[in-house]
């Protein structure tokens, strides 16, 4: 399944499209406050860009850009960010995940909630991204090259 696709058009177009998908994914994640979007959707888009790399650039090149073990690390990091944000508000005397108590005393509670949502969405995106790529790698490398 993962081998370099022999076709210059597919290869060049995918090389151009992958960064565009990733930028759009960042827009989806960070613009979740104002429009439909957020961590889950943006993470799925980031994963889709990596899968496109896997399909078109071949194993060697795509593993150089996104090592197969990196998905686990990203997923765990995203979950860790979420949990740490929750615990940080506990540390200042608030409830778990009450972003108004984040350790940034000179900002108003609304602003803290605003940024708390943003950080949490970023964590969600990392988890979704890593998990989807991990699942694809496990399924996709099975059929060939055993």
């Amino acid at each position: 399944m993962i081998h370099r696709y022999q076709g210059v058009v597919v290869e060049l177009v995918s090389r151009a499209v992958v960064p565009a998908i990733q930028v759009f994914a960042l827009y989806i994640i960070t613009h979740g406050h104002y429009s439909p979007g957020g961590g889950f959707q943006g993470g799925a888009l980031l994963a889709a860009s990596i899968l496109l790399l896997r399909f078109t650039q071949g194993r060697k090149e795509s593993y150089r850009r996104f090592p197969p073990g990196a998905g686990f690390a990203l997923a765990a990091l995203g979950l860790l960010i979420f949990l740490l944000v929750g615990l940080a508000s506990v540390a200042r005397g608030g409830s778990f995940l009450d972003y108004a108590y984040l350790p940034w005393p000179w900002a108003s509670p609304e602003t803290l909630r605003y940024y708390g949502i943003l950080v949490v969405e970023a964590g969600i995106a990392l988890t979704v991204w890593g998990t989807l790529v991990v699942v694809f790698d496990q399924v996709g490398t099975r059929t060939r090259d055993v």
Partner: peptide
């Protein structure tokens, strides 16, 4: 929350535990 998108505010703030 200064967040115009009600869905995001509910998902990540009011219902943050569920999202976790």
């Amino acid at each position: 929350t200064r967040t115009p998108n009600l869905v995001t505010a509910v998902l990540a703030d009011y219902r943050g535990y569920d999202t976790l």
